[in-house]
């Protein structure tokens, strides 16, 4: 495993008033790999995600993203929409955030906004029905259709996203993130609330994304079945601090990880507050 790094996190600290959600965290994620972030509730995983995707500005630290072509971005300096647009980091949310009143197809077209905006000559050409725009839109629809096929929702393309069952909503959110052509895909608990069959399908999908599209994945997950099966690399957080980092087999036998997870019942109670605060 000596693949190039896609994301390099150095000394990241995020403080909310007196609460330190993430403390001097350093790790890196490699290209074309699935990196899992695990840890008990309140360990700071979602906060870390919000720092990577620019929704929070870290108190201290550096987040360097390197594209396979060598260009690199310091994420802590970019606003969130530029992280998605230029650094090409896409994400999903712990509590699914779809455009509920818009159709599946529309959801996936909104994800291609920047490309389409350019094609529509920032609306001016589109307004007068330019052919180039019509072609660009047709391509965008094809791409959306491709991803709808992949997640098994092609038949429901014209239904409102809000009408989908929960598992399908999660998949749609992943497809929507993929429509932005990300280099790094950040998934916040994609298997939460899925049944066994759905969860197995998700594993297949994530592997396919990594293998066929070369997208690197960063994943927060509580379902150890999913984590151990598909991750190439696992980072374990507890109380905002990294306690282990390595291949699934190493992490599984790490004494600190076992302690953190066995103590999870107490930690959950103590840190329910911390989770609720930010």
């Amino acid at each position: 495993m000596s693949a190039a790094q896609i994301l390099n996190v150095e000394h990241l600290t995020m403080r909310f008033g007196g609460l330190v959600a993430v403390s001097a965290l350093s790790f890196s994620a490699r290209v074309h790999e699935i990196t899992a972030l695990i840890g008990p509730n309140g360990a700071g995983k979602t906060t870390l995600f919000n720092c990577i995707t620019g929704f929070y500005k870290p108190t201290v630290g550096r987040l360097q993203l390197t594209h396979p072509d060598g260009s690199s971005f310091l994420l802590e300096r970019l606003p969130e929409f530029r992280i998605a647009r230029e650094a090409r980091v896409a994400r999903t949310f712990q509590n699914v955030r779809l455009f509920a009143g818009m159709t599946l197809l529309e959801n996936l077209l909104v994800a291609q906004h920047n490309a389409l905006m350019l094609a529509s000559g920032f609306t001016v050409l589109g307004l007068f029905g330019s052919r180039a725009y019509a072609r660009a839109e047709a391509r965008a629809i094809d791409k959306a259709r491709y991803w709808l096929d992949r997640i098994g929702l092609a038949a429901r393309a014209d239904d409102p996203a809000g009408a989908l069952p929960y598992g399908a909503q999660r998949r749609l959110e992943i497809a929507r993130a993929l429509c932005t052509d990300p280099v790094l895909l950040c998934l916040d608990e994609p298997a939460a609330g899925l049944n066994n069959r759905e969860s197995a399908e998700l594993n297949l999908l994530l592997r396919a994304i990594r293998d066929e599209h070369g997208t690197s994945i960063l994943l927060i997950e509580h379902d150890m079945g999913v984590v151990m099966e598909i991750s190439d690399h696992i980072v374990v957080l507890d109380y905002g601090v990294k306690i282990a980092d390595g291949a699934p087999a190493e992490v599984r036998n790490d004494a600190k990880v076992i302690a953190a997870y066995l103590g999870v019942a107490d930690a959950e109670v103590e840190h329910a507050e911390a989770e609720a605060a930010p």
Partner: peptide
């Protein structure tokens, strides 16, 4: 029916999701 209009409606539905998709809100 143009990207800008869809972005407006998406903004109404969920602004945070829009920002995560690279839309300059």
């Amino acid at each position: 029916r143009l990207p800008i209009g869809r972005a407006w409606e998406a903004l109404r539905e969920d602004e945070i999701a829009c920002r995560a998709l690279g839309i300059n809100t």
